[in-house]
């Protein structure tokens, strides 16, 4: 039953999605925010700051995925803890 455990790295999927979201919001926050948008969010440029936050989240997941890649075990999955022989 020794099959591959990991299908694809979810951490990279999360990193890519939030990189896209982060960059879009950053651009909108920097270049396309008018007074009305600012007034709505009580003076905060929330698109800009959320974009920065999402890029940071993306970077954390990308770094985690690159530093600790998925290692496919060569022993059968679950052999260490199963009770059924």
């Amino acid at each position: 039953m020794a099959r591959k455990a990991g299908l694809f790295d979810l951490r990279l999927v999360i990193a890519v999605l939030f990189a896209i979201y982060g960059v879009v919001l950053l651009v909108v926050g920097l270049g396309f925010t008018d007074e009305a948008d600012l007034a709505k969010a009580d003076g905060l440029n929330i698109n800009l700051w959320s974009g920065v936050g999402m890029i940071a989240l993306s970077a954390v997941f990308a770094a985690w995925a690159l530093l600790r890649p998925v290692i496919v075990p060569d022993t059968p999955v679950g052999e260490s803890s199963g009770t059924r022989g």
Binding site: I14, L17, A41, D42
Partner: peptide, 29 residues
């Protein structure tokens, strides 16, 4: 189930990414 679970993890981060800024703007307000 793998697709459901992987999407749930993605969803978790999107939900937080939606609600955290809302909370911050709300508290500011």
């Amino acid at each position: 189930l793998s697709a459901a679970i992987y999407n749930e993890v993605l969803q978790f981060f999107v939900i937080v990414a939606a609600l955290l800024p809302l909370t911050i703007v709300g508290l500011h307000k």
